[in-house]
Structures are given as C-alpha cells and as structure tokens.
Design a protein around this nucleic acid. Structure first.
Lengths: 133, 133
DNA sequence: TTACGTTACGCGACCCGTAAAGATC
DNA sequence: GATCTTTACGGGTCGCGTAACGTAA
C-alpha cells in the first residue's frame, strides 16, 4: 500500500474510468491498471467493479476511499504546516528598537509572536503592539 | 513524501534515536538516516534536532508528526475495513432449510445479516433466528 | 576510545511506458 | 469494429545493506 496507489484509486473513483483517470494523472493506462490491481491483491478485496467500459466502486471500495480521503487530507495539512514554517524560516526578520529601551528588551527572553501574511512574510508583535518586519 | 518515510519519522520520534529506531524497524541505520534526510529536504524544514547522541523533534517536527499520526490512523482503519470485508468474503456460507419452507424462502429477495465471529467465520441470521454456518 | 549519525557505492526491486492480446459494447 | 482493460517486456529510478568516514562524549 503506497501513497501513489491511493491517489490512483481516488482518481479512478472520481473519473469512473481507468483511461480518463490515467489522463488526469498524466500516466499510461496500463501502469494505472497494474497499480490498482496490485493494491486490490494486497488488500484481498476488489475496490472496483469492472462493468464493461464502466468502472464503479464496490461497497468495500466506497468505505476504503472514504478513509483514504481523510488520510490524504491530514497529509496535506502536514505538508502545508511544513511549508508555512519554511516560508517563515526563509524570510528575514529585521528588528528596530530605540537603544534606550532596546538594550533591556533584547536581553530578556521574550516570546515573539509571528503572524504570517499572504505574501509569505510575517509581522512580528511583542507586548505593546510595536511592529517590525 | 512516501508512506515508509512517515513511518520512519514516527519511529525515530518515538525512540529518540536513529539507531534504536532502525532496530525497531528491522532496518540499517544508514538507510533510515538517508530517508529522514531526504524527507526533510523535500519539506524544506528540519524535523529533528541532532544533539550529539540525542535526537529530538523540532517544533515544526512536532506539528508534522501530529498530522502524520492522524493520517496513518485513517489508513489503518482503511486497511482494517478491507480485512473485515475479506474475512467475510473468504468464508463459506452454507444454508440448510426444510424443503417445505425453503422453497419459498430461497426464492424471495431476503436481507441476510452476517455477524462476523472471532475465528474469521460468520453466523448468518434471518427472521426467526434460525442460524447456519 | 566508543557510540552514533552521515556519506559512498553496488545490488535488487519496483514503477513506468510501449506493444500486443483479450474482452465488452 | 471501436473502445477499454489486461498482460508482457525493457529501461530507469530508488530504497536497502555493507563499508568507510566524521564527530561528539
């Protein structure tokens, strides 16, 4: 059971056809068919009913797909979280303070709040609402 | 991002060490290290802090692992669902009825209730509570 | 010096695409 | 006969294990 196989199952279920799903996936039909069959063999059940030129999910396949959709959604969140962290890490943080007060602030262990913006940068706030890029 | 890489991440996070995680996974340490590093490169962030001989999750790693655990849990449910269906499909259903009443029963479209048992077989009940293997 | 993580390299497995065969309408 | 799925085969990628290196306690 591999991730690409799961994505293939969702694509076939959505397209209702192996050939159309293969187009959506930019994949050759035989490769897709082989992977689906391999997964079905591993699971020990049929995910799809091949009805001539139509392909529909079996009852077991419906349940399987529902779980897989949940799983892939969580993985997308995991990836998105990583991307968000990366964009913050990649950005530069410039801090401007008055020497008179900065000398004290920069020494203490402060909790800086990073608020991500649409463009990938972030605003940083601390305490009184002073802001800096 | 592949499934085995995600499992490896969870194993390292749980063990707190690459070498111990590799043992748990029945895997050579170098293979494990390479896969983790490959995933980190793909995500663009560090999942673990290498502190000498201790390995701990970064903040981003913690969040990532949380999502991954959810995802893998859903995949386990998907697999378990398939296994349940398989055990029912694989079993044999034998039906014994008296000819006098069976002639009528076997002709009608009945809803048969399959109750899975511990040993993989299932009991089948219909209407009055008559049972058959 | 010992233990642990990393890099280098050869082997085997697996996925993909092309081509041919089978099946269904 | 046309369309779609399946099977067969060759090529390239990738994960794994062994071995050697770097590094911290």
């Amino acid at each position: 059971m591999e991730l690409h196989q799961l994505r293939y199952v969702l694509a076939v279920a959505r397209a209702g056809s192996f050939s159309r799903a293969a187009e959506d996936l930019y994949l050759a039909q035989p490769s897709l068919s082989v992977q689906i069959r391999k997964l079905e063999k591993e699971l020990g059940i049929a995910l799809f009913d091949r009805l001539g030129r139509r392909v529909v999910l079996t009852a077991a396949g419906e349940e399987f797909v529902a779980h897989v959709q949940q799983a892939l959604a969580h993985l997308d969140r995991a990836r998105a979280g990583a991307a968000a962290v990366r964009s913050l890490q990649g950005g530069r943080v410039s801090i401007g303070v008055l020497p008179s007060v900065g000398a004290g602030l920069m020494r203490c262990d402060c909790v800086w709040r990073l608020l991500p913006r649409r463009d990938g940068s972030a605003s940083c706030s601390w305490g009184t609402g002073r802001r800096s890029r």
